[in-house]
């Protein structure tokens, strides 16, 4: 057979492409469940962390998460969990960062007085600079942080973390003013939406 002929070339290319694509489709089908499970468990962990709910194993995450309800008050969707004798809320919010979209989960107390915590789901910030929003110290600043005048503000100077829950402020990240202000904007936009709902519920 003439391997340089037009017909052979077309048939060969078609067959090769078909085989490889079929193999890929197979590999994808075999792992799709695992990938979905990974994403789900990651989101669940993030929501529990933001709500300041402790957990250890994956099973524990699944058990606690069974009690998380998706609720809607006046058109605002929230996640609601009764834990430790109190109702806790969380909202998934996103907004523009320096390079791409930042998606965070924001945990809020039911009286809207304080945050519970935050967890970063997704970001494309510069590794080592804005990317530090995903570091523990940065997120820990939001634990039980008092919401003053409906907002969380940034401290004037960058620092290693403002861990005073009553300050209502967090430290900006050194060398990442853009990302820090984006976080402030995203969180405050969420608070503006959520706080009236929490206040109006009682």
């Amino acid at each position: 057979m003439n391997k340089q002929s037009f017909v052979y070339t077309v048939v060969f290319t078609f067959v090769v492409a078909f085989i490889f694509v079929a193999l890929l489709a197979g590999a994808n089908a075999m792992t799709v469940e695992q990938v979905r499970f990974n994403q789900q468990i990651r989101r669940q962990r993030a929501i529990l962390t933001a709500m300041d709910v402790p957990y250890e194993t994956e099973q524990e995450v699944a058990e606690i998460f069974d009690n998380v309800e998706e609720v809607e008050y006046n058109g605002v969707s929230l996640l609601q969990l009764d834990f430790d004798g109190e109702t806790r809320y969380a909202q998934e919010v996103s907004g523009g960062g320096v390079w791409g979209t930042i998606r965070v989960i924001l945990g809020i107390q039911s009286d809207g007085e304080r945050l519970l915590g935050i967890e970063v789901l997704e970001h494309n910030e510069t590794p080592g600079l804005g990317g530090r929003i995903d570091e523990d110290w940065f997120k820990r600043q939001f634990r039980e942080k008092k919401i003053i005048d409906g907002t969380i503000e940034l401290n004037e100077q960058p620092g290693e973390g403002d861990f005073d829950p009553d300050s209502g402020r967090i430290d900006r990240i050194t060398g990442a003013t853009g990302t820090s202000t984006s976080m402030r904007r995203i969180i405050n936009a969420s608070l503006e939406e959520v706080l009236p709902v929490l206040g109006g519920e009682r």
């Binding site: 060969f12 290319t13 492409a17 193999l23 695992q34």
Partner: peptide, 27 residues
């Protein structure tokens, strides 16, 4: 492999293995 589509087929093969790696990492 016919000479005319040599590089196309090479790219296809490379892409195949890269996507396999990507799938494994994601899972």
């Amino acid at each position: 492999i016919p000479r005319k589509v040599r590089m196309m087929v090479q790219t296809l093969i490379i892409a195949f293995y890269v996507i396999i790696v990507d799938i494994l990492l994601r899972a």
